[in-house]
Amino acid sequence: MGEYYIQEPGSEEAKGPYDVGRIADLIEAGKASETTLYYDEDREDWLPLMECEEIRLAVNPVQKPLSLRPKDISEDSLNHDDEHLPELKVDQMLAAAEGNTDETRHLKKKHRAAETAAAISLPALAVIMLMAAIVDIWPNVAVISTIQEDGDYGLLISHPLLVVGVADLFLTLCCILSVTDAFPLIRFRMMLGFGYFTYIFWSWGDQTMMIAVAVSSFAAWFCTITLNLYAMIACAVLGIVGMGAVAVMTVLG
């Protein structure tokens, strides 16, 4: 059974992850509706709840007729002694009614960890993208001054890293504003850094910068796809330290 993040149309606040049973309960309680959106990881987009077959079946289950074959019914089965059934204690019944069983506690703990991981990802990515913007823009500060003085924006064509730096600033702002729809763009940017910039530093013979860019780019990319708390913390630290090292070396170099 899958777990999904949901949000109302026009809202930027996602809730969850919830399993399909919980989503069905929210709809029944009026806290969600068929117009509520869920995040489809395969399509990387927010879609209406009823477009997910698993959720649709949970909300509107297909009722199968129940029938008993004559041979299944006997006097013995009707008068069977329940002495072999396990004893159910009152405190166990109350715990199950309140959702305090071991299984529900495990799911709640898992959900809290996922929510914490999601809360960490955006601030961490904002810092990483800001560092990446510094790396791209700092060597081109003189070009920015020339563009401002002469108004010659055609110089941007001959300085593509400056364009990438502006894009990094835009992605930084998206992370600050919690725009998770920008995650595909961040993934593309980090793969660009992992491939192109790693190759550039390798061709220059700068092994330190090459490793720092590769590690930080991969870590930032992984931050956009995982909700595992420990993996998120590790990648956030690696991404910030790695890209921070590249930014410091760029500014001081």
Rank of each mutant, 00 (worst) to 15 (best):
L57A: 11
N140L: 03
S11N: 08
A247S: 15
A14R: 00
A219M: 05
V246L: 11
I55N: 03
L155T: 00
T180D: 03
Q207K: 13
S77G: 07
P65T: 06
V248A: 07
F201M: 11
E53G: 07
D42I: 13
I233K: 15
L177W: 10
P123C: 00
A236T: 07
H111E: 09
L227T: 12
K110W: 12
V59R: 07
G151I: 03
A236L: 07
S74Y: 08
T250G: 08
I157A: 02
V135A: 07
H84W: 09
G30R: 10
Y39A: 00
Y153N: 04
M1G: 06
G2D: 04
R187V: 03
A167E: 06
V246S: 12
F170L: 14
R187S: 03
V213T: 11
L252A: 10
P48T: 01
T226K: 11
L130I: 04
G10S: 09
L173A: 11
M249P: 04
V59F: 13
E103I: 15
A58G: 05
D40R: 12
S11A: 06
S77P: 03
W138R: 08
V127P: 08
T208N: 04
A220R: 06
F218S: 04
A142V: 04
A29Q: 13
D81P: 05
H111K: 13
D45H: 14
T250P: 15
L155I: 01
A245W: 15
I240L: 13
S77W: 09
F183T: 00
E28C: 10
K64T: 09
V163C: 08
S74D: 04
M232C: 09
Q92T: 11
C174Q: 10
A124Q: 01
V62F: 12
E3G: 02
V20H: 06
G253L: 10
A119H: 01
P123L: 00
L227K: 12
A97I: 05
L57N: 10
G244V: 08
L68S: 06
R187A: 01
A58M: 08
Y199S: 06
A95D: 14
R22G: 02
Y38F: 15
S145F: 11
R69H: 13
E34H: 12
A118K: 04
L107S: 05
M50N: 06
D102A: 15
K89E: 12
I200A: 05
L47V: 13
E28G: 06
A114M: 14
G30H: 08
V127Y: 04
E75W: 14
F201N: 10
E28P: 06
